[in-house]
Design a protein around this nucleic acid. Structure first.
Length: 516
RNA sequence: GCGGGAAUAGCUCAGAGGUAGAGCAUCAGCUUCCCAAGCUGAGGGUCGCGGGUUCGAAUCCCGUUUCCCGCUCCA
């Protein structure tokens, strides 16, 4: 199947079977926002539980946290998001290319600097040993002219950026005749501001209200609680804080279904380590996180690392775990060595000491941080796209038949068990109900008596239910039922009293967690 | 945001200026002793939304919203 077709089928399957709906659909939808339906929410919760348990249960030095979405606005100044997440953008109408206006202007300034350098190199050749660079820079008319342009440009640019003056930025682009590197033309749109952070007001009156942001990442909530957790939990380095929560980014381009949304959910763990040991832990978490993904059995060939060459200002090492989605290898998780940047920033802005006294070294230092950060929604899409399969089956009469199955790992499946009476009479429905009433305390069960038994099996294949139990006439005499396995379609006859154990063993998280 | 394509029933689509359709799905009933597509009946659409052209618009035109494909960033 063509990958593009597969993706389209996946999206409609998600809607048709109650996994994912577009937000506000009855009002024509809201762009890049999606809702999780009755099965979607179960799968999502199960994914979150698997991640949480693999961090908080398996590592005795990793603890959880649930910090608020609203945080003090200074946090986002300290983290660099207020400045870095605020891009003035401009489009060239001919090449259709989009640029950051500030980058275009800085490139222009670099061009002027390049011209000065050229003059200096030329002069050096001409004057030889006697060349006095400082004097040359102060007297040469061409150098002075370019330096004048640089100074004027720098001043105007700084003022426009400070005042948030978009028209001013556009005017700089026009005045300095900056052209598009691709089309070479100066046919620009207006400069527009794209603030990647959503903001709102906190406070009951408009005058007294202060602007606060919806967090663009959950990490900062961990950093600002570092001291609280470290002290109250008596944590010794190295230790980690794990958190699952919503984050918000006003993406310019948000697409590919739930892969890139404006409201999304992250599972992050910040691991605080002794400076100098960060690469050891970076490697550890890199391997562990990859193992976690591969434990789901979707095939190791569908994963790869993508190491970053260009690093963010706070990082000294970074890698992505990429999964092969129907639209190609894309990042599902990032592992970053964030140095002591964040804690140092908060130390500076808050005036509190974010230091740890290390009794072994007998000294205090600001811990380094290794971060693992995975998108829940991207993980959800990974699970769904890896599990969606269309099968051709040879029937006994020689005809072919097809079925759509979500081969979800059993412990992640929304519905664990469906119970059917083979026919809806002779007391069979009552027995089926009895079984559900006994097992509903442990598993999400569903009852179905509509249509032929085959249809009922297929309906549950489509939502990924791993087990279907059928009550037949033999059940009434010997208290046994058939249990049918989703992936093989094979059946076995078991005692009703053994169902809880059999299903329990198969849908437990334990086996997956033990494999890590 | 820009360019290109699309939007008709829950899903997949037909309908190309003259009464809104099919298959599947859903619901009710019948049938059925284990793998969808037997039988009967029912419900469900102001054709994404708004305007225009026309005696008449799902159909032609304009705008708008949403989705898909490219251009950048990220979880």
């Amino acid at each position: 199947m063509a990958q593009e077709d597969l993706f389209k089928k996946l999206v409609s399957h998600c809607k048709e079977y109650g996994y994912v709906f577009q937000s506000s659909e009855v009002y024509d939808g809201l762009s890049a926002v999606y809702d999780y339906g009755q099965y979607g929410v179960e799968l999502k919760n199960n994914i979150k539980k698997y991640w949480w348990d693999s961090m908080v249960l398996l590592y005795e030095n990793v603890v959880g946290l649930d910090s608020a979405i609203f945080m003090h606005p200074t946090i986002w100044k300290a983290s660099g998001h207020v400045d870095a997440f605020n891009d003035p953008l401009v489009d060239n109408k001919d090449s259709k290319k989009r640029y950051r206006a500030d980058v275009l202007i800085e490139d222009q300034r670099a061009k002027f600097e390049g011209k000065i350098e050229k003059e200096i190199t030329k002069a050096k050749k001409r004057f030889g040993e006697a060349f006095n660079e400082d004097q040359f820079k102060e007297t040469n008319p061409r150098v002075l002219a370019n330096q004048g342009k640089i100074d004027e440009l720098t001043a105007r640019f700084a003022k426009a950026m400070n005042d948030n003056d978009l028209e001013g930025l556009k005017q700089i682009i026009l005045d300095y005749e900056i052209s598009c590197p691709v089309s070479g033309t100066k046919n620009w749109t207006d400069v527009r501001q794209f603030n990647l952070m959503f903001s709102t007001e906190m406070g009951s009156t408009a005058e007294g209200a202060s602007k606060i942001y919806l967090r663009p990442e959950t990490a900062q909530g961990i950093f600002v609680n570092y001291l609280n957790v470290q002290k109250t939990g008596r944590m010794k380095l190295p230790f980690g804080i794990a958190q699952i929560g919503k984050a918000f980014r006003n993406e310019i381009v948000a697409r590919q279904f739930i892969f890139r949304m404006r409201e999304f959910e992250q599972m992050e763990m910040q691991y605080f380590v002794r400076p100098g040991e960060e690469m050891k832990w970076f490697k550890h978490w890199k391997q562990f996180r990859m193992k976690w993904h591969q434990s789901l059995g979707f095939g190791s060939e569908n994963y790869r690392f993508h190491d970053h060459d260009k690093l963010a200002h706070y990082a000294n090492a970074a890698t992505d775990i990429e999964f092969k989605y129907p639209f190609g290898f894309k990042e599902v998780e990032g592992i970053h060595s964030r140095t002591d940047y964040d804690l140092k920033q908060h130390q500076e802005y808050s005036g509190k000491k974010f230091q740890f006294f290390d009794p072994e070294l007998n000294e205090s230092y600001t811990p380094y941080v290794v971060e693992t950060s995975i998108g829940v929604d991207r993980m959800f899409l990974q699970v769904i796209s890896a599990s969606y399969t269309e099968e051709e089956i040879k029937k006994e009469n020689g005809k072919t038949d097809s079925r759509v199955v979500l081969s979800l790992p059993a412990f992640l499946a929304p519905v664990k068990l469906a119970v059917f009476p083979l026919i809806k009479k002779d007391g069979l429905p009552d027995i089926a109900r009895e079984i559900i009433n006994e097992l509903k305390f442990d598993f999400y069960c569903q009852y179905d008596e509509k249509d032929s038994i085959g249809k009922r099996y297929r309906r549950h294949d489509a939502i990924g239910t791993p087990f279907c139990v059928t009550v037949d006439h033999q059940t009434a005499t010997d208290r046994t039922v058939t249990i049918r396995h989703r992936d093989t379609m094979e059946q076995e006859r078991v005692k009703i009293e053994d169902l809880k154990r059999i299903i329990g063993e198969n849908v437990s998280y334990e086996k997956a967690l033990r494999s890590l």
